[in-house]
Simulated assay, not measured.
Amino acid sequence: MKVLISGGAGYIGSTVASACLDAGITPVILDNLVTGRGEFAKGRAFYEGDIADGALVDRVFAEHPDIEAVVHCAALIVVPDSVADPVGYYRANVAKSLDFVSHLLRNGCQKMIFSSSASIYETGADFTVDESSGLAPQSPYARTKAVCEAMFADISATQPIRILSLRYFNPIGADPKMRTGLQLRRPSHALGKMIEAWEEGTPFQITGTAWPTRDGSGIRDYIHVWDLATAHVAALERFDTFTEDVINLGTGTGTTVRELAAAFNEVADRPIEVVETGPRPGDVAGAYTRTDLARRLLDWEARHSVAEGIAHSLQWARLREEMLG
């Protein structure tokens, strides 16, 4: 099997590409390198450019007519940035995705997996969600994902393409073989900020401590990026065996930011100091998923622990400068 991965030089897309290679699936990478890294596409068929560039997408399919499916990972993903620049986020995530799907249709592509987000859910009283839970995206970023899902549902209802949305939670870690990891030197998510604090000897800030969780800090479902990647492979391999159009990917266990910091200090060679501050723009209490559907349809479940995710993230942080400069 050969698959086109948009955003395949980014953190998620490049790890999905590695998991594909390990499973005997050939990835073709399309990435404009706005946030992705060319180093992550080395040794792989790579096209530098935008998903909205119809001529480029046509060229990809002309040169790889055996592409059977697309994994669409290309997106901007930073919540506070989406609050500051909603126009840019809607253009990049929604308008360009619409262009991209039109190009796929023109080239006869009939299968697409959309890397969506669990941030679109309305959180229940116990902070758990499943695929039937209500939607209430709380940031422009999250709303771009919800708009894309609705748009794709309308398109797939009448057009010759089926689109599966994988709603995933908070990826951590790196490829265990250290081929790829977080490309950003200063990532904005909690574990990235912990690693920054660890590297610089500065305090880590818990942003928001008055959420209605068990300890007041936000709660998340921290899924190892390799587990996330293998789920994409399972979805590709089983695409024709189920009719559902949404599957959640997570560990099924909620971890608060305080608990994540405690786990970090158990794994790291030196502890970080933890201080408290207010929430960031667009922040929410969080949620974690019930995983029954993924287990049943994909024969998949998360296998790496939060501690392993932290350990792999720290290992990658030590290698990142050597790998990416």
Rank of each mutant, 00 (worst) to 15 (best):
M1R: 10
I5G: 07
G7D: 12
A9L: 08
Y11L: 00
I12T: 03
S14I: 09
T15M: 08
S18C: 13
L30Y: 00
L33I: 02
L33K: 00
V34C: 09
A41G: 00
F46G: 04
E48A: 15
G49W: 00
A52W: 07
A55N: 09
A55S: 15
L56F: 01
F61Y: 06
H64E: 12
P65N: 09
P65S: 08
I67D: 01
A69K: 02
V70P: 03
V70Y: 04
V71S: 08
A75G: 02
P80A: 13
P80L: 10
D81C: 02
D85C: 04
Y90S: 14
N93D: 02
A95V: 08
V101S: 06
K111W: 11
M112Y: 13
A125E: 15
T128D: 04
V129G: 00
G134R: 15
P137A: 12
S139Q: 12
P140S: 15
A142Y: 05
T144R: 07
I155D: 05
S156G: 01
R162Q: 09
A174D: 02
D175N: 15
P176V: 08
R179Y: 04
Q183E: 11
Q183C: 07
A190V: 10
M194W: 03
I195W: 01
P203Q: 05
P203H: 11
T207F: 15
S217Y: 09
I223P: 01
A231H: 12
H232C: 06
A234M: 09
A235V: 02
E237C: 04
D240H: 09
T243K: 15
E244M: 05
E244Q: 15
R258S: 13
R258K: 12
A263Y: 08
N265I: 13
E266H: 12
A268Q: 13
D269F: 08
D269H: 10
R270Y: 06
I272V: 13
P279D: 05
A287C: 11
T289G: 09
D292W: 11
D299T: 11
W300R: 14
R303Y: 02
S305V: 06
A307C: 01
A307K: 15
I310W: 01
S313F: 07
S313K: 11
Q315C: 05
A317Y: 00
R320A: 07
